[in-house]
Design a protein around this nucleic acid. Sequence first.
DNA 1: CTTGCTCCTATAGCCACTGGAGGATGTACG
DNA 2: CGTACATCCTCCAGTGGCTATAGGAGCAAG
Lengths: 143, 143
Amino acid sequence: MSHGIAIGKVSEGSGVKIPTIRYYEQIGLLPAPPRTEGGRRTYDHKDIERLSFIRHSRELGFDIDQIQTLLALQDRPDQSCADADAIAKARLAEVARKIASLTALQAELKRMVEGCSHGRVETCRVIEILADHDKCKHHQQAN
Amino acid sequence: MSHGIAIGKVSEGSGVKIPTIRYYEQIGLLPAPPRTEGGRRTYDHKDIERLSFIRHSRELGFDIDQIQTLLALQDRPDQSCADADAIAKARLAEVARKIASLTALQAELKRMVEGCSHGRVETCRVIEILADHDKCKHHQQAN
DNA sequence: CTTGCTCCTATAGCCACTGGAGGATGTACG
DNA sequence: CGTACATCCTCCAGTGGCTATAGGAGCAAG
């Protein structure tokens, strides 16, 4: 008879950790659910779906603001999906940039590691390259 | 006559922002420099080199702890560079993992965007895929 | 009724900075 | 010598997206 899923089950079902669920409620990403008399949160299946959506979006690297927009779009199925498309495209471009940046990084790290003579620091290419930026091509970000 | 480079010049010379230099001093990554009578920090060329080293290391994605170790190694040129090598190799592996993860992400985002019918949200593949994780392969991280 | 699990709030910490307020110092010029 | 202005100082708060801890309360099974 009891409808109302406890936060632990919701966490299991969605793959989002309990403190994270509460955090999402706090920042307004997830609506505050009704409570039991004792003050415990009671969710339903829609909430699990919403959290799964959020988790998957986070895994794809969308930030909270973008997820807010995506969730809002999901709730209005008769609207144009141009916004969702734009957000996904922006993220795709971002990912492509990051891959390019990391690939350049990888090349530099490889040169460092392969050039290491495994001797003393004095002749170590790792330290050398770190010390002198001119010994490598310029690049932007890491991560 | 005045030796002692002001923080602004050091910032220019190293490419590290002024507040970041002070932050590095605070966390012990950069030694606290002598001060003028008025209390201003006075640096020398070694400091600029050290900060360039730090900046370059950060660009390569090493964290502060790793940079501490790398800096310590740089100061002792007669030691084995095995530690530096290990740190660089670890970072290289990390970067490779991240590239793989991002490439998987890219594929999923591409499928999303390319599948988008540019119609209404109802039939939007972007939203659909986000909502239903089973419609895509499993993966781990983002960024 | 008691054990033990789940849940609650509130607060602080993580990383590596970044920015602002509000004031002191150093310098170039008239 | 006075003043305008650039540069610097400290302290503190904020960023994003959580994660962890302390100290307690609720709830179901045995």
